[in-house]
Simulated assay, not measured.
Amino acid sequence: MDDFSKLAKLFLEGNEDDAIHYLSQMGPTPNRLHLYEQFLTPTMYHIGALWERNEISVADEHLATAVCDFVLSQLDSMEKRKVEKNASKALLFGIEEEQHYLGLKMVASTFREYGWDVRYLGPNLPLDHALTQVNRYKPDVIGVSAALSYRLPVLKDVIEHLARLEWSPTVLIGGRMAKEYDLRSFASDRVLIVKDLHQLEAWIEGNEEDINATS
């Protein structure tokens, strides 16, 4: 049994403590990005595939999601950089009718680990409500998550609105749609397609180097 199948079994059993213990054995201070990409993400994809094949019920999938959410919260409570007064700001949300949110929480955790001030709005957020928060918070980066291909027109509308914001924030598009579909037509000097957390981390580190070089 591969590593993510073992973790999936613990998630489907609702076994939070053993799941945390299992991940803690990956090293004395496990790298969160490694845990997200090598364990949690493939585990939840595996569980999703089980559900699609009717090998588990909706209730099983919901239980596994809840356990994964708990694990993410525990990992996010690990030591991270202090948020400075003038820290860069990121605002993250999933588009309307998108219920997937675990990947978005991993993105929020990654930004926090680098000392960003993060506002996580969760999934299934209508554009008008998202824009209210965006205009109030005025983030440097807006992260948008989408998974389902039939929501592509909604994603296009969201990007067009965000690209017109007067202070020119960077818009990052992620989620399963970014991994499985060619979204290059949406990309621009202000809109980036981010396929995984390694790419996100590389972008954050490059952005910090640019800031330090000009300060």
Rank of each mutant, 00 (worst) to 15 (best):
D3A: 06
F4D: 06
F4C: 09
F4I: 09
S5M: 10
K6C: 08
L7F: 14
N15V: 10
D18A: 14
D18H: 12
S24H: 07
M26K: 13
N31T: 01
H34W: 00
Y36V: 01
Q38H: 04
L40D: 06
L50T: 09
E52C: 13
E52Y: 11
N54F: 15
I56H: 07
S57K: 05
S57L: 05
A59N: 03
E61S: 09
H62T: 02
H62S: 01
V71Y: 10
Q74H: 15
E79L: 11
K80Y: 12
K80S: 12
K82S: 03
V83F: 02
E84Q: 11
K85P: 07
S88Y: 08
A90T: 05
Y101G: 14
V107T: 04
S109I: 02
D117G: 02
D117R: 12
V118C: 02
G122E: 06
P123M: 02
N124H: 01
L125S: 01
D128R: 11
A130Q: 03
L131Y: 11
L131S: 06
L131W: 13
L131N: 07
Q133A: 10
D140M: 05
G143V: 04
S145H: 13
A147D: 04
S149A: 13
P153C: 03
P153H: 00
V154Y: 02
I159T: 12
L165N: 08
S168T: 11
P169G: 03
I173N: 12
G174V: 10
E180A: 12
R184I: 15
F186P: 11
S188W: 07
S188V: 09
V191D: 06
L192C: 09
L197Y: 08
L197T: 10
G206E: 10
N207T: 15
I211K: 14
T214W: 08
